[in-house]
Amino acid sequence: MSLSPEQVRQVAHLARLELKNEQVEHYARQLSNILGMVDRLSAAQTDGVPEMAHPLDMTQRLRPDVVTETDRRDVFQEHAPAVQDGLFLVPKVIE
């Protein structure tokens, strides 16, 4: 499996990564090599094998519905890139 520069651009867009033009070819080659290595998986016989998402066969624990958190906005926003009136600011969102 190899990735074209165009596919690299699409993936980078989905992942919201800005790539410089000269990086695209480079990444295309490297990512193709990685996928080439990964393609060895296709030879494995996995019919009827259940997927394994977690190393341990455990189930979800539940938390009681009790408020445990207090307002720490000032601490959380102390190093935030841009805030005003307690809000995080971003460039205008147009819908």
Binding site: Q7, V11, A12, L14, A15, L17, E18, Q30, L31
Partner: peptide, 20 residues
């Protein structure tokens, strides 16, 4: 831009492989 600047090449490679 934030993610392009903030992440190094290996992290970007893995993000792209994972996204793909």
């Amino acid at each position: 831009k934030s993610r392009g600047e903030g992440f190094g090449a290996e992290v970007q490679r893995r993000i792209m492989i994972g996204t793909y």
